[in-house]
């Protein structure tokens, strides 16, 4: 897992150096049963390509969408996904856990 996350951050660096807009999403907190541990990364480019994961695949779509705004205005944001949250229910974190994700732009 660690080695894979390493590759992901290396790819974020490559993408940025190639002139792309890049955001890094990081799981900063988990509650209950969460599919990916704290510290897991998802990196996103300005065309919506992404690598890595912050969940088992259930909230990545939402995170990629939010990352587009972060890349556009450069402001880091924190998001929470979980069953208590209407949006998250839509995003479908069906395992019953809740996660907090920090999304920042590589500048």
């Amino acid at each position: 897992m660690l080695a894979a996350d390493d590759d992901i951050l290396a790819r974020a660096e490559d993408w940025r150096k190639a002139g792309k807009g890049v955001a890094i999403a990081t799981v900063t907190e988990t509650w209950g049963s969460a599919p990916r541990p704290v510290g897991s990364h998802l990196v996103i480019d300005d065309e919506g390509h992404f690598l890595g994961s912050v969940s088992g695949g259930c909230v990545e779509g939402e995170v990629v969408t939010e990352a587009m705004d972060v890349i556009a205005d450069g402001k880091a944001r924190t998001f929470e996904f979980g069953v208590q949250d209407e949006t998250a229910w839509r995003a479908g974190l069906s395992c019953g856990g809740r996660i907090r994700v920090y999304v920042e732009k590589v500048v």
Binding site: L9, A10, A12, R16, I24, K105, V106
Partner: peptide
């Protein structure tokens, strides 16, 4: 994250 920080982080890890 500044690209410079990301580069150092990746370099430290590779080493």
């Amino acid at each position: 994250m500044r690209l410079e920080l990301l580069s150092i982080l990746n370099a430290e890890r590779a080493a």
